[in-house]
Nucleic acid binder design. Structure first.
Lengths: 335, 335
DNA sequence: CGATCGGTTGCAATCGTTTGCACGCTAGGA
DNA sequence: TCCTAGCGTGCAAACGATTGCAACCGATCG
């Protein structure tokens, strides 16, 4: 907790003016090498550190990127953040992170606040309404959306069309003709995309697709257990792995064998998916890459270019023990 | 992407001076109510937003808290962040988050950088060396450590003494006399605490305690499988739930029955622990509260008070199916 | 020897906001 | 009527850095 050393202190000590010190430290070639060396030495000795607030204020360009995520504790988002953070840091930027708690109104408030501090915004899996999104895009900073397509902004997303096809083809390959989708939060664009692409692919593959509402956590999956059991589906696709693992847990607790009685597959392949019982078949996606690409789009934009075309990441199916051949006869079982 | 509106623009439009506008917007009681109303109206109409950079620069107090965590994707840290974020936001502060990737050198770099932007620092489960920590504390901002005790700083931590006692008493109650601890990262203070308190309590309870090195992820737990199997322990305590779940997975893959052949218990009780097979006995701690308390200590300190006494959070044992009575005879089993 | 030029350095303005201080106006009392 | 008190407002300085421009230096050239 020492006193701050300012430019003027260094100048006094070095016997020069503040402008010379500033230029010397910033590597201007106007200053003679000896002076530069001397100033640097003095600055180092005094422990001078530029006041970033003053610096950014004067320069007018914030070196901070604001990010919103629906839930910090969701592994999907943490990993996106990880990638984005690494990329931004490499580019000399810092991350200001806001958590909306899955609440569109809170997310709007966050955007409103982050924009005051940031030179750019990244909305990760935005839960914003269409109108809210418009407002966010009207802010005087460039905006990139992760997992949400929108005009006049950068877009980086998972290719859910490919994803859903991979999942359904895997299941039909195992003989499943009736599949149930356990959905995610209603505000989630990616849930909408999963539904849309599943429906479309199901039609193409002549699979019967049922849908129920779920959520984003293990509890949601667990709670969906009874409904799933009473459906006529032989395979279930869950919104994400947390839901999938919760569902597996209910099945175990209630004596339903997976995959012999019911197959379960999911999106995302978070690390823990490999360790569920049985290990969960899931769609691996490069979440960290999502963050990196968002940063890439941002830098291009900040450099003055137009928004590049959306980046779409194709996931890869990781087949594990939670999916298997469809059972022959309809399940008969008391509730 | 519109032009910024500044105070001077509002002043011109409202027909007053900048100072009046500033005071009106900041609720100074020096200005007459009509003028305040008028200025507010004009400002709203023009869409004026204070330049936070200029504002904080002038005021000299950063409204940002810098936080470091070893790993953004670890549920423990995400939840601490969640709590801290909520508390700081309520107090009008924002979080600048840095991830050290479990690397002490990187963490030191982070601290060095965050301090330029922050009015306070929170080090969550710092992996810093003793010397590094000294350096961090020498920074001209108050520092709170979460899960690491240190002098001249705020301290918020889990009470590992109580934690280890709960775990060991639970296991001895089930008849276990030989327990193996699968450790965490060597740089982790909390791993050291867990070992220290486990040893001490084991001695008091007359339990034989063995220790092996592990890590912080599911893989670390899975990889520890063979060593655990060959040990003579009847119960295992893992560094955290991720390690525990990884270990359970290995046991399942290799036909070892849990808990009849081996009991497994762990620290932290992350949400997914309830959904492992079998569900994991673990120590629930209020991680979000850890973040909130850190913020509380910080506010007190920022208000000028001395550092309060360390806050210790006592965890609660959640007994699930992964622990059971000790088997009678030594396990005999081929590798 | 004086003018010029290239290379260094310092002065001072500037970014947008807050705030101490002084000023002007009005009203009330002497 | 004049002085004063008090309220409301504006002027200008300040925060700490960057940077255009002018000034200064010694050296070189005519």
């Amino acid at each position: 907790m020492a006193e701050r050393v300012r430019l003027i202190d260094v100048a006094r000590e070095a016997g020069t003016s503040v402008s010379t010190v500033s230029r010397a430290l910033n590597g201007s070639d106007l200053i003679s090498p000896e002076v530069v060396a001397h100033v640097r030495a003095v600055a180092g000795q005094l422990g001078y550190r530029a006041d970033k607030r003053a610096q950014e204020f004067k320069l007018g360009r914030p070196l901070t990127v604001g990010v919103t995520v629906p839930d910090l504790t969701n592994p999907f988002f943490s990993e996106v953040l990880k990638g984005l953070n690494a990329a931004a840091r490499a580019g000399g930027y810092r991350l200001l992170i806001g958590e909306s708690s899955e609440d569109p109104a809170e997310e709007l408030r966050l955007v409103d606040e982050l924009v005051d501090y940031s030179g750019a915004l990244v909305l990760c899996s935005s839960r914003l309404t269409r109108a809210g999104l418009e407002k966010a895009l009207a802010q005087p900073v460039p905006v990139v959306c992760i997992n949400r397509t929108v005009k006049n902004a950068g877009v980086v997303a998972i290719d859910y069309r490919a994803a859903s096809r991979l999942l359904l083809e895997h299941l039909t390959g195992l003989g499943h003709r009736r599949v149930l989708y356990v959905g995610g939060p209603a505000t989630s664009w990616s849930d909408g995309e999963r539904r849309r692409t599943l429906r479309r692919t199901a039609r193409a593959l002549d699979v019967t697709l049922d849908e129920i509402d779920g959520g984003w956590s293990g509890n949601h999956g667990y709670d969906a257990g009874p409904t799933v059991l009473h459906s006529r589906a032989t395979a279930v696709i869950t919104f994400n792995d947390l839901v999938g693992i919760g569902l597996l847990s209910w099945m175990y607790d209630n004596g339903v064998e997976v995959p012999s009685e019911l197959s379960v597959a999911s999106y995302d392949d978070i690390p823990i998916a490999a360790y569920s019982r049985p290990p969960l078949t899931s769609l691996r996606n490069e979440r960290a890459k999502l963050g990196e690409l968002a940063w890439e789009q941002l830098t291009k934009r900040l450099a003055g270019a137009d928004w590049p075309a959306p980046d779409l990441l194709t996931p890869e199916l990781v087949v594990r023990a939670s999916t298997g051949p469809a059972r022959r006869r309809a399940r008969i079982r008391a509730s």
